[in-house]
Nucleic acid binder design. Structure first.
Lengths: 216, 216
DNA sequence: AACCATCGTTACTTACGGTAACAGAAGCCT
DNA sequence: AGGCTTCTGTTACCGTAAGTAACGATGGTT
């Protein structure tokens, strides 16, 4: 009765295949950006569409699987930066820099991650569904950062909620600034990092008004 | 030789028509979200597709025109909040609240604005094009805020660049936090506003570590 | 009356996501 | 061996949506 061993072997074979398919998809996305078609991915993998669908269900499934790989990688890099032994300011700067370096190194992948073609089943329409659209990546990063914040610093009552707000807010700041910076390259990465950290350190509240203006 | 008067009349008629079409498109987007089809919009306007294409070129053109309307409206509301006579902290809170109230009032429109189906001509591929994707709205808001910052507060040398970094960073923070909040509704709008303002006021740098942890 | 610009239509092409339905190969069971 | 399932792969198709071509009305200009 080898059925278990048999099943095991086939399962790992399937996982292997899945990995190969994901790598092919990766190459295509890297080349074509977020508008890579299922046909193109299948062709790159040397097979045809229905196989992709058998493995991943639908396009959203493939995209989710692909996104998970990259997100995991990025996340572990960020965690490392966040866990390094250093002053708080340095940790924050290191984390920002890690993120920016990642999106700088592979803009196509980054674009894809932020833009998962917003599909997902539109059937149930749960309440006000609103925003499944803009990337599970940002949500995951935000939640992760919220965890780190909540478990390490003392925010008093409502710390849980506040940490989540800050997590998502900081991640959004990082993302938007990075997106803009990558498009226009107006300054060095180091300066961007420094300015963002300054912002988080409350410099906006501290600086004085320009003379003569309406003030701010 | 009435040609100029004639041309004038026809031009204004065309603009009138354009406005009607945009209003129809607005209704459909409000109803169907970002996946509103050109057919549906044309039907809502009581006409057929080719007319839409004559007026707006392609789907991206229609979307851009539609986005501009809403962006202008939102922007003027934000400017009002930013210009109100009050302390800096209060202005910032009022601006955040205005934005959040807007996206809360019309989530569908908001979703559409943030997700213009990322088309735009991919032909020229200028340098590393990277991110046309995530909404001209965010870019515009960021630039606008940068202007306000640069002309009102004293950032020393490099003030121009720093103001832009901060503009895009703050807008990104607002956007991401708002997006998450709208999806989960974990707290009241007022609390979200207060927490974000706290973040901008440097509370992250000021709070103490939790005892026993690795610190942050 | 002849003209030409504009508004509108129908009908088509193309591309893509997704889905049958079918065909061969490999291992397991009597 | 030969039947059984199961996995892999194919071709061929459907539905939908963007975008276009080609043709028809209508109404002011000369």
């Amino acid at each position: 009765m080898d059925t278990t061993r048999q099943a095991e072997r086939q399962r790992t074979a399937a996982e292997q295949r899945r990995r190969e398919l994901l790598e092919a998809a990766d190459r295509v996305v890297l080349r074509d950006g977020p508008k890579a078609s299922m046909n193109a991915i299948a062709a790159e993998a040397g097979i045809t569409k229905p196989i992709l669908y058998r493995h991943f269900g639908d396009k959203g499934g493939l995209y989710r699987a692909l996104a998970k790989r990259h997100t995991d990688a990025l996340l572990s890099a960020l965690r490392a930066a966040l866990d390094a032994p250093a002053e708080r300011r340095q940790r924050v700067e290191a984390t920002l820099d890690t993120y920016l370096a990642a999106i700088e190194a592979r803009p196509q992948v980054y674009r894809f991650l932020m833009h998962p073609s917003d599909d997902a089943a539109p059937s149930p329409e749960q309440g006000f569904d609103v925003g499944r659209h803009s990337a599970p990546l940002l949500r995951r990063l935000g939640e992760e950062l919220a965890l780190v914040i909540a478990e390490r610093v003392d925010l008093g009552p409502d710390s849980e909620e506040m940490a989540r707000i800050w997590g998502h807010g900081i991640v959004g700041m990082m993302h938007a600034a990075g997106d803009w910076w990558l498009g226009e390259r107006p300054c060095s990465r180091a300066q961007l990092v420094r300015s963002l950290a300054d912002l988080l350190w409350g410099r906006l509240a501290a600086v004085g008004n320009l003379p003569g203006g309406p003030g701010f």
